[in-house]
Design a binder for these strands. Structure first.
Length: 643
RNA sequence: GCCAGCGUAGCUCAGUCGGUAGAGUAACUGAUUCGUAAUCAGUAGGUCGGGGGUUCGACUCCCCCCGCUGGCUCCA
């Protein structure tokens, strides 16, 4: 009898005609219950498919629902159920694509009218009926010509378009009930396997992501193996909402935007500004330590400057319109680089001067389309922690390595320890020679390899003037935000005719590195707020210590304590309102102030304070000097020392 | 920019069928002097995002604009 071999070496014999479902069932019923599909000789197949009996022995591996691959199959099957539900409810629906995504799936539909929330309820209800009906997912294969014919017949032009792009000779088709869809598979054995899903939102989405194409209607959903997991996922989303920087920014009075002022323009309130000030001070002192010169440059420049730089041609959709000044056209700057170049060019530079590192907290303005604005994370006016390094070709890779190390040090100082690193290569729209691009990509790659950091390649995602390394930080809902960026540029030195005197007394062209570590202060601040849920570490907290008096009798002593702490350099507030202690504590907790000092008769008599830490709760009364010593130790960035 | 949803007191949110708006909280005033997450009472607070239309009458229905949110596209 033919047999299959499980991953642990166990063998199960079977007779002809049995499918894998039968075989696994005979082997271990419990295992079958957890399986959604299987791999045969490493290839994913449906549970209901049959083994090739000519092979006497096949190695198989059930794909379990609680594996990433299993969950993916599960969600994909749920997407098919959604498509069936939509097709059965609305007339003239044409199917787009229905892939799985993190935590769920979506399906795109070409429909007459966009879905309303009520439509989603109907789709949800129909999906549940389909699941209850427990229809089998029946696979079959068709030649491409047959499939094209089939989907033309079915009035599914998008499917026909997809088939044309499939390189294989045949394509997979799955049918459940009377619904048929193009699909690679594998799928669940039947719709009844789906236990827990929830439609989350509907949104317009261009066919193939191209805004020249027709806009389809997309329904997003999340799906999980069990109802408990779904519930847990929804709970996590709720938790994430609580950390939303927009919500916390309001609650802690950190920043706002105003309709009167305009979209995407941020107002930094005193407490947000206090944090920004601390970040800027830290940033400046670290840059000086690392050999950067800090500069200041204007926010406007003549439009010709941007024609020279290439921004006028390559970046125009993001530029604000020119304004006329004495017959000259000026625009607000979208970038800082040309200004730094002009400082470089203000005198002749020698190879002995290089590398030159100019750093600036440079405020820029970019026109972003209204639909993309998002809290602090995507705005129209923002301050980059920008720098431009001018290097000789020999220095390039070494400088990139140093910048990379410096970047990670700065990010770690703020408590970020996990990020995704991408190497972005030449885009379709680019300037410069292919040789330059190859050299620049090589230098970035070399620095990454030397640093032994894990990174991914993002093909075609570079800037028009050069390739880059991006470091992305994830926000609480799993969205990834690009903060740090390190870009190599051969192009601007060329365009601005930037030179240095080389060893031979000749004229050579430096290479530029553009880099921003935090990216923009606005976005970085947004990420910081979410990272800490507003409970900033001591060194960043706008108010580090709040003094809470028990009665008016304690006000005088509290003032001396306040003065002492201020003299020691701490940001201190005194809450001497005529309120109960519990009330004051509640407020200091809600404001997420790291330390509250309770000051009552007992403390005034013994010249002590009773600290209450945001992290650890109430502490025993201690002398002021002792408390100051304690918080001095804590009042530092988290990144350690730069090597 | 495109698709959808939303915009009511400083904040969080009710407001039914079209009949001129309400709660909690914050603010203010007074009382209370209190020991680790909300003391009590009173007062005041609104062009219902803006403009136009329908109607005897619009927070409510329709149109345009602004802003926000979730996506698409694009990016620090």
């Amino acid at each position: 009898m033919p047999k299959v071999i499980f991953p642990d070496g166990a063998v199960q014999e079977y007779s002809e005609g049995e499918n894998f479902l039968d075989i696994i069932k005979a082997f271990d019923k419990k295992l079958l219950k957890k399986s959604v599909a299987l791999k045969v000789e490493g290839v994913a197949k449906d549970l209901r498919s049959k083994p090739d009996v000519t092979a006497k022995s096949l190695s198989i591996e059930p794909i379990l629902l609680d594996s990433p691959e299993g969950l993916d199959i599960y969600r994909h099957s749920a997407a098919h159920v959604m498509a069936e539900a939509v097709k059965s409810l609305f007339d003239g629906v044409k199917l787009g694509i229905g892939p799985t995504i993190d935590n769920g799936f979506y399906y795109d539909f070409d429909v007459e009218k966009p879905f309303t929330p009520e439509d989603l309820d109907k789709v949800d209800a129909r999906m549940r009926e389909i699941i209850k009906g427990n229809h089998k997912f029946e696979p079959r294969r068709m030649s491409k010509a047959e499939a094209v014919e089939f989907f033309k017949e079915a009035n599914e032009p998008y499917k026909v378009e997809i088939i044309a792009d499939i390189p294989d000779d045949t394509v997979g088709i799955y049918t459940q009930g009377d619904f048929t869809d193009l699909c690679r598979g594998p799928h669940l054995p039947s719709t009844g396997y789906i236990q827990a899903f929830k439609l989350t939102s509907a949104a317009g989405a261009y066919w193939r992501g191209d805004e020249k194409n027709r806009m389809l209607q997309r329904i997003y959903a999340t799906a999980w193996g069990t109802k408990a997991e779904l519930k847990e996922h929804l709970r996590r989303l709720e938790e994430a909402k609580k950390r939303d920087h927009r919500k916390i920014g309001k609650a802690l009075d950190l920043f706002s935007t105003s309709e009167e002022i305009g979209s995407g323009l941020v107002l930094w309130h005193p407490k947000g500004a206090a944090i920004r000030g601390i970040i800027e001070d830290f940033w400046k002192s670290e840059h000086r330590k690392s050999g950067y010169d800090i500069i200041y440059t204007p926010h406007l420049a003549r439009v010709d400057l941007w024609k020279t730089s290439g921004h006028w041609d390559f970046y125009q959709e993001n530029l604000f319109s020119p304004m006329d000044l004495d017959g000259q056209e000026y625009i607000v700057r979208p970038m800082n680089c040309p200004f730094h170049i002009e400082i470089y060019k203000s005198r002749i530079r020698s190879y002995r001067d290089l590398p030159i590192r100019y750093a600036e907290l440079g405020t820029v303005y970019r026109y972003e389309r209204s639909g993309v604005l998002h809290g602090l994370l995507r705005v129209r006016g923002f301050t980059q922690d920008d720098a431009h390094l001018f290097t000789t070709p020999d220095q390039l890779e070494g400088e990139i390595g140093d910048v990379l190390e410096f970047t990670l040090y700065i990010l770690k100082s703020f408590g970020f320890n996990e990020f995704d690193i991408y190497l972005s290569t030449r885009p379709d729209k680019y300037v410069g020679s292919l040789d330059d691009w190859a050299q620049a990509e090589g230098a970035l790659k070399g620095a990454l390899e030397a640093s032994e950091l894990k990174y991914m390649v993002d093909p075609g995602e570079g800037v028009f003037y050069g390739p880059k390394i991006d470091i992305k930080i994830k926000d609480v809902i799993g969205r990834s935000w690009q903060c740090s960026t390190i870009q190599v540029d051969f192009n601007l030195p060329e365009r601005f005719n930037v030179t240095y005197r080389d060893e031979e007394g000749g004229t050579s062209r430096p290479i530029m590195i553009h880099r921003a570590l935090m990216g923009s202060l606005e976005r970085f601040f947004g990420c910081l707020i979410e990272h800490y849920a507003g409970a900033f570490p001591l060194w960043l907290a706008p108010v580090q210590v709040i003094l809470l008096t028990v009665t008016d009798r304690n006000n005088d002593y509290a003032k001396t304590v306040q003065k002492q702490l201020q003299r020691a350099g701490f940001r201190v507030e005194l809450d001497s309102r005529n309120e109960k202690l519990g009330f004051k504590i509640r407020e200091s907790e809600l404001q997420k102030i790291p330390y509250s000092l309770v000051i009552g008769d007992k403390e005034a008599e013994t010249l002590t304070v009773s600290p209450r830490s945001k992290q650890a709760g109430a502490m025993d009364a201690i002398a002021m000097e002792e408390f100051i010593g304690l918080i001095k130790k804590e009042n530092v960035p988290q990144g350690g020392e730069l090597s």
